[in-house]
C-alpha cells in the first residue's frame, strides 16, 4: 500500500455488496455496480444511498446504465435483462445466452452482444434488429460516430455493421481472437486487444491495419480518452498509453504507467480516463489507485504517478471517474464500493 495524500480524499461514502464487483457504471447521478454472484446495485453518487437493487440468477459480467440513469442493462453468463431502477421492473432480453457487453447508443436505443449475435433494442426492451451469426461469441463492440454503425469484435477480425434490415457489413480481417475493442469518438480509429498479446489498430475509412506486438500477455482492456488522442491498454505489468495524434502511433513507443510499488508485482485491476483532461486513474490489484498524466511522460520510458494516490483495502476490480472529474468511484474485490473526491486543482 502506498502513501495516501491530502490531494484525494477517500471515503466520501462507502457501500458494500455481498459479492465481488465485476463492473461499475455511472449515469444520471447514480453509480451502478454488478457483482459476480448476480447482485446489481444502484446508489446515489452524491450520498451513497441505495436507490435500487436486483439479484439475477447465475451471476453478472457487466452493467450498462442509460444516460439518465433511469435504466440499466444487466449482462451475465446466463442471460441479459433491462432493469428499470424506479419501480424495479426487469425485462429478459435475449434468452439464456452469454452476454458480457451492452452499450447504449442514446436514450432510445441500446445494443448487446449475446453469444454470436449482436442485437439492438429500444428503451423498452423491444428487439429492433438482430445481426447475422458472427464466427464466435462477440467479445466486445463499439458504437461508431453517429450511432449508425457498430464495430464488432469476433474471431477473425472487426466487423463494421449497420444495425438495420439490409444494412451493410464489412470485415476488417485479423486472424486471431479479439478480446476488447475501443474506438475514437470520431470513429476513425478502431483498436482491438487480442489473445495473442497484440494490439491491432484499424482505420475505419481506409484499408489500413497496424500491429503493436511485444506484450507479455493477452490484452483484454483498451480505452481511448474522451478526445481520442490517447489509448490505454493492459497486456504488460504497466499500463501502456499510445498517442494517436496525426498519423497515429505507428513507429512510436508508448508511455508506460508504472505502479508505485513494484515489489509485489501488482497487476492492473482497472483504469479510467478523466472525462475531459489527459489524466488517467489506474487501480492495481495491491489496492493502490494512482492518477497519471501521460503528457508528462517520455515515450518508451516509464512514468510514475502524480501525487494523487490513495490506497484501497483490497484489489481494485473496477473504477470510474465521475462526470465532473472531481471524484473517482472505486469497486474492490471485497465488495466495498467507495467514492473518492479529488480535492487538488491539478487533477480535478
Amino acid at each position: 500500500m502506498s502513501h495516501a495524500t491530502e490531494l484525494v480524499q477517500r471515503s466520501a461514502w462507502q457501500v458494500v455488496i455481498p459479492d465481488a464487483p465485476q463492473a461499475l457504471g455511472l449515469a444520471g447521478g447514480r453509480v451502478f455496480i454488478a457483482g459476480c454472484e448476480g447482485t446489481a446495485l444502484a446508489v446515489d453518487s452524491g450520498t451513497g444511498q441505495t436507490v435500487g437493487s436486483q439479484q439475477v440468477e447465475g451471476g453478472l459480467l457487466g452493467i450498462a446504465p442509460s444516460g439518465d440513469g433511469s435504466k440499466a442493462i444487466l449482462a451475465g453468463p446466463f442471460g441479459s435483462w433491462l432493469w428499470t431502477i424506479d419501480g424495479g421492473d426487469v425485462v429478459e432480453l435475449a434468452g439464456k445466452s452469454w452476454c458480457s457487453v451492452a452499450r447504449w447508443a442514446n436514450e432510445q436505443r441500446f445494443a448487446l452482444a449475446t453469444g454470436r449475435y449482436v442485437s439492438v433494442f429500444d428503451q423498452t426492451g423491444e428487439l429492433l434488429w438482430k445481426s447475422e451469426q458472427f464466427p464466435s461469441t462477440v467479445t466486445d463492440f463499439s458504437w461508431l460516430g453517429s450511432y449508425r454503425r457498430l464495430a464488432v469484435a469476433s474471431y477473425g477480425g472487426v466487423h463494421l455493421v449497420e444495425p438495420r434490415p439490409g444494412g451493410s457489413s464489412t470485415l476488417m480481417p485479423f486472424r486471431g481472437s479479439l478480446l476488447a475493442l475501443a474506438s475514437t469518438p470520431n470513429g476513425r480509429w478502431i483498436v482491438s486487444g487480442n489473445q495473442d498479446a497484440t494490439l491491432q489498430v484499424f482505420r475505419s475509412d481506409k484499408d489500413v491495419r497496424l500491429e503493436m506486438e511485444g506484450y507479455p500477455s493477452k490484452i483484454s482492456r483498451v480505452a481511448f480518452d474522451s478526445t481520442g488522442r490517447f489509448l490505454a491498454n493492459d497486456g504488460a505489468p504497466e499500463v501502456s498509453v499510445w498517442d494517436f495524434r496525426g498519423k497515429g502511433p505507428s513507429g512510436t513507443a508508448p508511455v508506460l504507467l508504472v505502479p508505485s510499488d513494484r515489489s509485489g508485482d501488482p497487476e492492473i485491476g482497472s483504469f479510467s480516463w478523466h472525462p475531459s483532461k489527459p489524466l488517467i486513474a489506474v487501480g492495481w490489484d495491491d489496492g493502490d489507485c494512482l492518477i497519471y498524466r501521460p503528457t508528462d511522460g517520455v515515450h518508451g520510458k516509464p512514468l510514475g504517478a502524480l501525487d494523487q494516490v490513495f490506497a484501497a483495502d483490497s484489489s481494485v476490480e473496477a473504477l470510474h471517474w465521475g462526470h465532473d472529474g472531481r471524484s473517482i468511484f472505486v469497486a474492490e474485490s471485497s465488495g466495498l464500493i467507495s467514492r473518492c473526491d479529488v480535492i487538488a486543482d491539478e487533477a480535478a
Partner: peptide, 27 residues
C-alpha cells in the same frame, strides 16, 4: 460452452485453443 476453436497465430494448424473455455474459466 460453444466449442469455439481458434487457431493460434503461429502458423501451425495443430495449435488450437477453445476461446469459450478461456472466457468461461475466467468467469
Amino acid at each position: 460452452s460453444e466449442e469455439e476453436i481458434f487457431e493460434m497465430n503461429n502458423g501451425c494448424i495443430c495449435c488450437t485453443v477453445r476461446g469459450d473455455l478461456i472466457r468461461i474459466l475466467g468467469e
